[in-house]
Simulated assay, not measured.
Amino acid sequence: MTRSERAMQVWQILVGVAHNRQTLTYGQVAEHLEFEGAGVLAQILNCIMCYCQAKGLPPLTCLVVNQTTGLPGTGLTTVQNLPTDREAVYKQNWFALYPAQISDFEPYA
């Protein structure tokens, strides 16, 4: 599966998580995808982060956090103020948006 296809899978997971005002650990996301570990998620999450930034959307990736710290990874460069950004993600009506497509993530893969 390509990175763009994986980004689409994670996008769908995170939209549901945002709707329920939740967060997931990197391990939980990896588990959903049946990955052996969470180390491969950085590039996939980067696709989503860049797409959100390009579309002027709140940083959906701020909902994925380290199990120990409860914070997104340091590579999540779009997060300026985590509580504010997370609330913006929760308030965004993701289901009202035109659905993202695999091809939307390809420029960032």
Rank of each mutant, 00 (worst) to 15 (best):
C52F: 00
A54T: 05
G70L: 08
K55R: 15
T69L: 11
L57F: 02
V89I: 03
C62K: 00
T69S: 13
Q101W: 05
T78H: 06
L63N: 00
T77I: 12
P99I: 14
G70E: 05
P107F: 13
L41P: 03
G56W: 04
F105I: 08
Q80G: 12
T77H: 13
P99W: 10
F95S: 15
C52I: 00
T68N: 06
L97S: 13
C47P: 08
A96L: 14
V79N: 04
I44P: 08
Q101R: 15
L63T: 01
P99T: 10
R86P: 05
T84M: 06
Q80L: 15
Y98D: 15
Q67P: 02
N66K: 07
C62F: 01
Q43C: 08
G70S: 10
Y98G: 09
T84R: 05
C52W: 00
E106Y: 07
P58S: 09
A54Y: 00
P72R: 02
L76H: 06
A42R: 15
E87A: 11
D85S: 06
V89M: 09
T84L: 03
V89P: 10
M49Y: 02
C47N: 09
T61F: 02
D104I: 10
S103V: 11
G75Q: 15
G56P: 13
I44S: 07
E87T: 10
R86M: 14
A54E: 05
N81F: 15
L60G: 01
T77P: 04
Q92V: 08
A42F: 04
G56K: 10
L60K: 01
L71S: 06
G70I: 08
Y98F: 12
Q80Y: 12
P72S: 05
L76W: 01
A100D: 13
N66C: 11
F105T: 01
T68A: 12
L63Q: 01
E106P: 06
G56A: 13
S103K: 13
L57W: 06
T61G: 02
Q67R: 09
V64K: 02
Y51N: 03
D85T: 05
T84D: 03
P107I: 07
K55D: 10
L63R: 01
F95G: 15
T84P: 00
D85I: 08
P72C: 04
V79P: 05
D85P: 04
R86G: 13
L41K: 07
P83V: 03
L82K: 02
P83C: 04
L76Q: 11
L60W: 07
K55A: 07
G70P: 00
V65A: 07
I102N: 11
V64P: 00
I44W: 07
A42Y: 07
P72K: 11
R86V: 08
Q80I: 15
Q101M: 13
A42K: 13
Q67V: 04
T69K: 11
P59G: 10
P107M: 12
G73W: 03
T78G: 09
V64N: 03
N66Q: 03
Q53F: 05
M49W: 02
A54P: 00
N46Q: 01
N81V: 14
I44E: 09
F95C: 15
V40T: 13
N93W: 08
T84W: 04
N66V: 12
E106S: 10
R86I: 07
C47H: 04
V89G: 05
A100I: 14
L76V: 03
I44L: 05
S103E: 14
G75K: 14
G75V: 14
R86Y: 08
N81I: 12
